[in-house]
Design a binder for these strands. Structure first.
Lengths: 179, 179
DNA sequence: TATAATAATTAGACAGCGTTCAATTTTAAC
DNA sequence: GTTAAAATTGAACGCTGTCTAATTATTATA
């Protein structure tokens, strides 16, 4: 998956590489969808770890560190990152038991920083929306859309948008986060 | 494509439905990638038309109309819309001749409105970034991510983010678009 | 109109895919 | 050592994208 991405991914290739037969893959995971979900669940864990590492060595601008960590992981593991969003299993496909907790943990990291940066606001709602904002920039960056449109600093644009939102939702003054 | 989406799309099925053989499809389009690109190119045209229709009947809040048009088209043709972003052809795949112009026309619609709303700013850069912002919200809405995270008003969130950015980049005062 | 040249169309062949399942091998328990 | 349970296998099925030789249809020319 990390090599060829979601489109080139195949259960048969997995079986070949780990030295098992295709049948065993299906006995363990049940379907290709659930195998991919297991991989994506693992990716959420890796992603959260990378985010925590970034935050641990971050200076006082933890928001910039967050955005950087987001982009760094996506650019460092583009196929793993894209597989999360490229894969659209049928709604009834059961999720691996770790899937939701790991995904929630990842969002929780963001939410904590938002809550710290903007104490009064609805941190959960802001976190969801700002993750969507950064995701949009990251998706356009990795997918080539930004290159097509002449955008050369996706990170900078994403960070600018995040800062604008945090400023606008800051507790007291509405013009910035610095008196 | 509109029925089953990108994952379920097949050149053989297309051939069957239009009453031609699979070979003819390949003589005309050359590869599945280029067939999908032709479909996506058409989708950009449909999308731009829908945006223009929305703007034509919009009130004075043209920014809200823009965001609404974006979401309306994506929600009205989810598979067509997703196919644009789900499809990742090899970089060397030649694009249909209308592909780039149509895509540019779509962005141009946004850019014009941004330029009107925020006269002084770099409308092109803002348009790219705000489209990414709205795209992120739309992708999370259609992909189910927002449902998973408890977000119930993706449109409202997207519009709020756009307004914050426009306010922050407004020519004179930095606190709002209304004196 | 008859013929030659060009274009359009076809369907079979190939390798690979996800999925299923009866048969087999390995492991564990007694 | 024997039996019960678990794990593993790979062939079979219908599907996919892609290629290509053969065929048909169309057009231009004599």
């Amino acid at each position: 998956m990390a090599e060829g991405g979601f489109a080139a991914f195949s259960a048969r290739e997995v079986a070949k590489r780990i030295g098992y037969s295709i049948g065993t893959i299906y006995n363990v995971f049940g379907s290709l969808d659930r195998l991919v979900l297991a991989i994506n669940s693992r990716t959420f864990g890796l992603w959260a770890d990378a985010m925590r590492d970034h935050l641990a060595v971050a200076g006082e601008d933890r928001i910039a560190a967050l955005v950087d960590a987001y982009f760094d992981f996506a650019e460092g593991h583009p196929h793993l990152w894209m597989a999360i969003y490229d894969h659209r299993p049928p709604a009834e496909t059961p999720l691996p038991e770790d899937y939701l907790p790991r995904r929630a943990a990842l969002l929780g990291l963001v939410e904590s920083e938002i809550a710290r940066a903007v104490p009064g606001a609805d941190a959960a709602a802001l976190a969801r929306s700002l993750v969507a904002t950064v995701h949009g920039h990251c998706a356009f960056a990795l997918g080539g859309t930004f290159a097509l449109l002449g955008e050369r600093d996706p990170r900078g644009a994403a960070l600018a948008r995040v800062r604008e939102t945090l400023s606008a939702n800051a507790p007291r003054a509405s013009g910035g986060d610095r008196p």
